[in-house]
Amino acid sequence: MKRVPPILAVLLTLAAGLTPLCGEEPAGQPLKLTPETIQMGAFYSGMPLRIEGMVRPGSSVVVVVRGPDVEEVFNLKGRAGPIWINKSKVHISGAPSLFLCFHIAPLKETLSLSVLEKYQIGYEEIHKQMRIQPPEQDREVVRASFITLKTQENVYRNIRNGVQMGTATPAGVPYSVEFHWPRRAPPAAYEVKAYECRDHTVVSQTIASLKVVEVGFPAWMAWFARKHASLYGLMAVIVAMLAGFGIDLLASRLRRKGIATRAKPSPAETHPEAAPAGAGKGESESEKPPRGLKPAA
């Protein structure tokens, strides 16, 4: 085997290092995320997220936030006569758990179809990446239904005019994206990509990572439920019973003290002839405590 001359090896290494993304210019300023980590505490309800960056004058921007690919199982509904029923199970993989796309002009006016395909931007590209099992399902119907479902859940969004461009400075044109992070997005590492676009192509891209993590009591509780399931199950039953009996005890004490409103006599007591349906002899009689038993408190 021929040895590569050392000088050529150095040149090749340098070339590889200088062109991390084929056909693109070196990335500009890094993306700034505020906050960089989203903490899901006890009172978490999503939170405002700001993405900031800089592009050269004359460029447009597309910002994509993408969750990790996950496999999900769904019921696929079908018609059986006049009714819709769950006909079969469908496994869908290869689609991101979250897909938020912010842009200024319509995607197809900003980038060519081949570029959208290359960078997997837009719902159509998610369609292409999606894997469906069993494969004999009507793929188009399943894909369209998947996007509809995710859009309803607010984890797939395509937002036009979602990027605000600032005033040009000598360093470039600043841009920002502000939105409320969806509260239904699960804990995971999300990828934020900003594409600088010019002449229907991507001239550079910058990437940042957004972490969504559980912290504090919810994190402990989730860990306890998974790692000590038996103990957790027992605790759930006992705590629920104690809560129920505790509130009952509290309510009865409050009533005894006269804090609760006085109960009016029931119609059955005031009108014994108006007996409820039920046992043969009528309940006005049967409601009386049976012989040998103490009357109810």
Binding site: A225, A229, S230, Y232, G233, A240, D248, A251
Partner: peptide, 26 residues
């Protein structure tokens, strides 16, 4: 059922259950 669900499916959310329980017990 609660115990079985907690041990087999890990799907019992005690916080959710207790909040519902506060309302439901009253």
């Amino acid at each position: 059922v609660t115990y079985m669900q907690a041990t087999t499916n890990f799907t019992v959310d005690l916080v959710l259950a207790l909040l519902l329980a506060v309302g439901s017990t009253i």
